[in-house]
Computed example of a mutant assay.
Amino acid sequence: MLKRELNFQGDTPLLYLIATPIGNLEEFSSRAISVLKEMDYVACEDTRNSGLLLKRFGIELPLISCHEHNEEKASERILSLMKEGKKIAYMSDAGYPIISDPGERLARKVLEAGFKVSVVNGPNAGLCAFVCSGIPSKHFYFYGFLESKPSTRKKELESLKDFRDTIIFYESPHRIEDTLKDMVAILGKDRQACLARELTKKHEEFIRGKLAELSELPPDTLIGEMVIVVEGAKEKAKEISDEDIKSYLSEALKERKSKDAIKEISKQYSLPKNRVYDIYLKNWKN
């Protein structure tokens, strides 16, 4: 039977995942500040960056370094402290932990230990770019960073080229030029896209256009971490064989004169009228 316990009730230790500003510090929520003030420790991706953020809001707590390269070891220390009853929150440098940031292994170990995890919401670069992109929004797929190795990056894009929904990528300034060129070559030059940079900051910019147009932007003007929102692949027109057309005509001719049946099939399936007429002549006029 599944064990159930409300997150904010009971005695089971709970780890808070705190979303942090992606640029504008005014987006650090009052709830995040109040939760952090109740903690005994703050684990963080970068103690220097998180220390400065906490200091700005008058929070002084012991910090635990927990980043990509030491997450396994740091997680064990955090679990040990939680077992002692210590209250701990985790913050990555910008946005949500785990989303293209460290924290996944920590959260998984906490859950495997039978403890609880909760989140304090805040900014997310991918969603900020997505809602301002003008790209179809009914469905979307967050991909994050492509691999830096060119051959691997191209294979990743190949696997996504027929994906029908909007895709959200992250990219860094030193790779943006090559990534955009690869996108043009693999996803197609006419694919609509939006490049967002410096989100929530003074020089925030959204550049909307076709991938080919974005790939021609001067690289030295693309500064800061970037989000690329790319529309999904268009539905490919179904290949209609002569046998298909013959079948459609056969059904239509049961209720319509030949002229009307040919016209209807041509319009319904966006087919050249001459092609439909030729198939009619071949099968019904011999």
Rank of each mutant, 00 (worst) to 15 (best):
S148N: 13
I167Q: 03
S65A: 12
K161F: 05
L52Q: 13
A212T: 03
T47Y: 09
R153V: 04
V230T: 01
I88A: 02
K3G: 11
S159W: 01
K263F: 14
I223E: 02
G126K: 03
A32N: 11
I18A: 04
A196R: 00
V117A: 14
C66E: 10
L15N: 07
Y269S: 12
M183Y: 14
E112P: 13
H174F: 06
K181L: 15
V120L: 02
E26A: 12
E156G: 09
K138H: 13
L211E: 04
E38Y: 00
S250E: 12
H174K: 03
K202W: 04
D162W: 09
V184R: 13
L81I: 08
N124I: 10
K181G: 08
E27K: 05
G114L: 07
K263E: 15
V131W: 09
K149H: 09
M1D: 03
K189G: 08
V276D: 03
F140I: 05
Y269W: 12
K238E: 14
F163Q: 03
I33R: 15
L180R: 08
L195R: 01
D190L: 04
L222R: 07
M183A: 14
K3P: 05
K246C: 11
F8I: 11
E235K: 14
L160Q: 14
K73S: 12
L6C: 13
A94T: 03
P150S: 14
K116N: 11
K73L: 12
D278E: 07
I98V: 10
A43H: 00
I78T: 01
P136A: 03
F163S: 00
S92I: 03
F115A: 09
G209N: 10
H203W: 10
R48C: 05
Y277P: 05
N70A: 00
M183N: 13
K210P: 14
G85E: 08
E60L: 10
I265Q: 05
T221Q: 10
I98K: 11
I186N: 04
E177D: 15
L54R: 10
F8C: 13
K210N: 13
I262T: 09
I240F: 15
G58M: 06
C132Y: 00
P173N: 05
E216T: 04
Y280V: 13
P13Q: 05
Y277G: 04
S270A: 14
S34W: 15
K257Y: 07
K87D: 01
L106I: 06
S270P: 08
E225V: 01
E71I: 04
M39H: 10
K138W: 05
E38G: 02
R164S: 03
H67P: 15
G103W: 06
L214S: 01
F57K: 10
K109H: 07
K161Y: 03
I22T: 08
K155S: 06
R191H: 06
L222P: 06
G10R: 15
E213N: 07
K263W: 09
M183V: 05
